[in-house]
Design a protein around this nucleic acid. Structure first.
Length: 458
RNA sequence: GUGGCUAUGGUAUAAUGGUUAUUACUUCGGUUUGUGGUACCGACAAUACGGGUUCAAUUCCCGUUAGCCACCCCA
């Protein structure tokens, strides 16, 4: 096809536009531009306002509650995720990036980080630290799902985990951390909460539930019919109209909780009241991962219209059995994670237009240089300023003063320093006020002091 | 994974089965030498990819890929 095209162009345009025809031919031979993989998004400088805001605010909230930074590898043994998240789950079954490395070992890109943290807790003997261990993290996760707005194959999470203790106050605190992080970012959120009890509670409940669904089997959607034996709990999450009617009258797990779990859950709710975190009890909330016990919760954007598919900002819960299941000693734990892309989506929705305005509203000083000597002097001067904590913008590869002033203007500089041959010889520098256009000549030695004053005042 | 809609320069768009594919923004350069925001001039730059129908396809058809939306699920 490219060949056909070029010959056609060449023949039709050979008299008039020889040059452009030839150029076309060259263009067609040019290597095809690469595109990013499906569902992989570039994070662009124009969105730095959002991303840095989420990074910084989430970090500061986590630290304020006494959480420490931690990371686990992006790549882990595939088995780790299969065992922890669960064989029957969609995350493992159809969404995980799983492949063999060069040694033939089965590895997987992490679809979430709780399992990795739990593994790291065991491998690093972190049970010898004062318990509980409270950590936070942020970073990319991978799920091979069909992309949609607010859903990508590489996405980013901020999360917290508390390992080594079981107390309702921990659950409540985690919910408060997640809720307040979102709130600090200007988003109104609601917490959906439920308890799915201990593993034992769940066994008993499941017997009852399956019995119920069997009796109503003919009313269920096809998808849910399959799940009756495979993953009956998940039917409760269904949004299918038919299913919803059946679910309404289904037995609720809350009625099957042990005394201990019930009391535990009540305490969590009491503490949430104390923390003034608004929540909604959702008896059908079960979460998609197998390792949860007792408290489970999800966070949603709190707005009438935006309550569509992508309004889930994150979720979490208690997972008292996970560490033991992965080969550690019995270690109760709980945690949550928030989707950063989802948060940013909500921020945009709520017209928190941080991305449109430079995040930094501080005064900005631009350094313009002229001529080789000016450039040299500018290099050392800027370096000197930087060392003393004065940051100036510059574009030293540009030669014309006009061009540099243009840039200064686009970057909303309040002042521009101009340094050319003349100034180099005099040991001075021009400071131009970008609003009034008034220029002042000052000694280079006084520059640092002057700039510090400007940066403070404005 | 299933279904629906879509695909024109970096962005946003116009148009057409037939000479050179419209316009705006952005980017770069210029309107004399060392002064930005305005104005004027100019340049770069696109029919996603592959195949079919046709004398002729950017336009019609099919496939692929990608994006969006819904489902599934989740963050």
């Amino acid at each position: 096809m490219p060949v056909k095209k070029t010959t056609k162009k060449a023949t039709t345009t050979k008299v008039t536009k020889k040059g452009s025809a030839a150029k076309k031919a060259v263009d067609n031979k040019k290597a095809k531009a690469y595109e990013s993989l499906r569902g992989m998004k570039d994070i662009l400088p124009k969105h730095e306002g959002y991303w840095l805001d989420v990074f910084h605010k989430s970090e500061s909230v986590a630290r304020a509650y006494g959480y420490q930074y931690m990371q686990a590898p992006i790549l882990e043994q595939a088995q780790l995720f299969v065992r922890s998240i669960g064989k029957g789950t969609d995350v493992v079954n159809k969404e995980m990036y799983i492949f063999e490395d060069r040694d033939g070992k089965k590895v997987a890109l992490r679809p979430e980080l709780t399992a990795g943290i739990a593994r790291a807790y065991i491998s690093n003997g972190m049970h010898n630290l004062p318990q509980p261990v409270k950590v936070w993290y942020q970073g990319p996760m991978f799920r091979h799902d069909r992309p949609q707005a607010g859903r990508y194959r590489q996405f980013h999470q901020f999360g917290c985990e508390v390992l080594g203790d079981r107390d309702p106050v921990i659950d409540a605190e985690l919910i408060a951390v997640s809720y307040n992080t979102i709130k600090d970012l200007g988003i109104d959120a609601v917490v959906h909460i439920n308890s799915i009890g201990s593993l034992e509670d769940r066994q008993n409940y499941l017997v009852e539930l399956v019995g119920y669904f069997r009796s109503k089997r003919s009313y269920l959607s096809d998808e849910s019919k399959k799940r009756v034996s495979k993953n009956p709990l998940r039917i409760l999450d269904s949004k299918d109209g038919q299913d919803l009617e059946v679910i309404q009258d289904a037995p609720q797990i809350i009625d099957w909780l042990s005394q201990d779990s019930k009391a535990y859950f009540m305490k969590v709710l009491e503490y949430l009241d104390e923390l003034q975190v608004p929540y909604v009890l959702v008896p059908t909330l079960v979460r998609g991962l197998d390792y949860y016990t007792d408290t489970v919760f999800e966070l949603f954007v709190d707005s009438e219209d935006a309550l569509s598919a992508q309004s889930a900002l994150g979720g979490g819960g208690r997972y008292d059995g996970l560490v033991e299941q992965l080969g550690g000693r019995l270690t109760p734990a709980a945690g949550f994670s928030l989707g950063i892309e989802r948060i940013i989506l909500a921020m945009k929705d709520q017209k928190q237009k941080l991305g449109d305005v430079p995040a930094e509203k501080k005064p900005h000083i631009f350094f313009a240089q002229l001529g080789e000597q000016g450039r040299r002097r500018a290099l050392s001067l800027i370096e000197q300023l930087r060392k003393s904590g004065v940051f100036v913008g510059s574009h030293l590869s540009k030669n014309s003063l006009k061009g540099q002033l243009e840039l200064a203007n686009k970057q909303h500089a309040t002042h521009t320093i101009i340094l050319g041959q003349k100034e180099v010889q005099d040991g001075t520098v021009i400071i131009r006020d970008m609003d009034s256009g008034i220029q002042e000549i000052i000694d280079q030695k006084k520059l640092e002091k002057k700039l510090k004053k400007l940066l403070e005042i404005v």
